[in-house]
Design a protein around this nucleic acid. Structure first.
Length: 474
DNA sequence: AACTCAGGCAACCGCAGTGAC
DNA sequence: AGTCACTGCGGTTGCCTGAGT
């Protein structure tokens, strides 16, 4: 038979082979054959996209319309981008997910050539890893008896009930109806999500040493997320990671003591995590950390060197200061080094697009502006508005597409409610401005271990509240 | 070499939204 | 207003592959 789209019967039979499928018989499932792809391509060439349900009727292809649509949109469509996500893409995905959650199609719309399935798979891969870590971490006896079984169960239930990293989402229980319906505009919406907020406020307000001195020790250990990954992988991962970057942790630690925020940003850990890392790296100082047995420092080192995910288990959130940063972990997990990274020995993650956005001018740019911008320009297609806009954001002095300097854009969208200096300055650090004194003085207090998730954020939300932002952007 | 495990990916399923009738 | 078909989306599952033991 000759199909209506010009395919001969041989190709249709070939395509339907194996399933013993003819018209009127059950449709085929499973992997697509090349012959099936060819039929579908021909069909689309003839009739265009859409009317997927008629594919079977017109071509004899034993696939349901739904399957055809999926196959086309995910694999056969022209200009689809295959291969691994670039560092910039990863950062952007993380940032967008932090803002809008599991809106894969929405996120994918900002990635020309990428499908929602691609992005979803990418994210789920991360999620799986996190779940594993979570499971391991909550195993009785794995950690330090810090948490009661009740608490573990409760928190495990909490974390697993949400559709995705709920504890990471900036608006965990908050709808962002308007925000997700409008075009994603990084200049507005890449403002620090809650997890960034907490991370930021943690290191901003209180150096780890202070927290330690205050006896806030509960969360220290819980950051050491052991991994089910082979130890060889772990050590290879981070040890080489550090060595490749000539990261002098002793200097880093020293710098952290003097400027906790910078070091935390640079290393990509939340402050406590950072401190743990450095402390463990210097074994002699490992015992400084409450609850950590110096004798097991070697093992802990490996544990800590596990690639962290920002999807840190709830159990580690006893302190508001312990929320890992979104951009840091993604860097650790996903990001290979690049030129920009290597140009800043103490700032292995400073190459990150998000880092550039969030920390703006804080990171010195090698040879003024070109090194980074050229790099990003190379990877940012003109067809990707978000990435282009982010490029704008990397330079605090840059002019946005709307003709505003970043700082002025920031001012534009600063919530007017309260109209306070605090509101402005709360975001300021992310674009390289100074931090108000109130924030700098913020110190998480010990003894609120029973803090609920909401309470956990309450203090920092005073400073950063994406939902407030989005509401005020209305 | 066999086994295990994690990562990556493709595909399916179910639900919801939308437009035509 | 109700029904139906179509489409889009998000969640989930299963398969394949590579690395490690």
């Amino acid at each position: 038979m000759t199909s209506e789209v010009g395919m001969n019967s041989t190709s249709v039979e070939e395509a339907n082979a194996g399933g013993n499928i003819r018209r009127g018989t059950p449709l085929k499932k499973g992997p697509w054959l090349k012959a099936e792809d060819a039929i579908l391509r021909d069909y689309v060439a003839e009739y265009g996209e859409g009317n997927w349900s008629s594919v079977h009727r017109r071509t004899g292809l034993a696939r349901c319309g739904k399957s055809c649509r999926l196959r086309w949109s995910n694999h056969l469509k022209p200009y689809l981008k295959k291969g691994a996500f670039t560092q910039e893409e990863e950062q952007l995905i993380v940032a967008m997910h932090a803002q809008i959650g599991n809106k894969w199609a929405r996120i994918a719309s900002e990635f020309p050539g990428r499908t929602d399935n691609d992005i979803k798979n990418f994210w789920n891969t991360r999620l799986k890893r996190q779940r594993r870590e979570e499971k391991y971490m909550l195993s009785p006896g794995v950690f330090f008896g810090e948490f009661s079984e009740d608490k573990q169960n409760k928190e495990l239930a909490t974390s697993s009930s949400a559709n995705s990293l709920p504890h990471l989402l900036p608006n965990n229980n908050v709808e962002i109806p308007t925000a997700e319906n409008r075009n994603f505009e990084p200049s507005q919406q890449l403002y620090p999500p809650r997890l960034l907020n907490n991370d930021f406020s943690s290191f901003l307000g209180t150096p780890a040493t202070s927290l330690r001195d205050q006896g806030l020790n509960s969360s220290w250990n819980t950051h050491s997320v052991p991994s089910t990954v082979h130890s060889s992988k772990r050590t290879q991962g981070l040890e080489s990671w550090f060595s490749n970057r000539n990261v002098d942790l002793s200097q880093a630690h020293h710098q952290y003591q003097n400027d906790g925020s910078f070091f935390t940003q640079s290393l990509g850990f939340s402050s406590l995590c950072t401190h743990n890392l450095t402390s463990n790296y210097h074994r002699s100082s490992a015992s400084e950390i409450p609850g950590i047995q110096a004798s097991s420092s070697e093992h802990r080192l490996k544990g800590k060197l596990e690639l962290p995910s920002f999807q840190t288990p709830m159990t580690s959130w006893d302190s508001a200061s312990s929320v890992p940063s979104i951009e840091s972990s993604s860097t650790f997990i996903q990001s290979p080094p690049n030129e920009y990274t290597d140009s800043c020995s103490l700032s292995p993650q400073s190459s990150d697009l998000l880092h550039a956005i969030l920390y703006g001018s804080q990171t010195p740019k090698a040879s003024s502006s070109n090194s980074y911008q050229e790099t990003s320009r190379d990877v940012v297609p003109d067809s990707c508005p978000v990435l282009r806009q982010i490029q704008w954001g990397t330079n605090p002095d840059a002019i946005t597409p709307s003709g505003h300097a970043i700082t002025s854009v920031f001012s534009e969208y600063t919530p007017s409610s309260g109209g306070s200096l605090e509101d402005h300055q709360s975001i300021a650090p992310f674009i390289g401005c100074n931090v108000n004194q109130e924030m700098a003085n913020f110190t998480p207090t010990a003894g609120n271990n029973d803090t609920s998730n909401d309470d956990l954020f309450s203090e920092t939300d005073m400073y950063f509240s994406p939902s407030d932002w989005l509401r005020d952007l209305e």
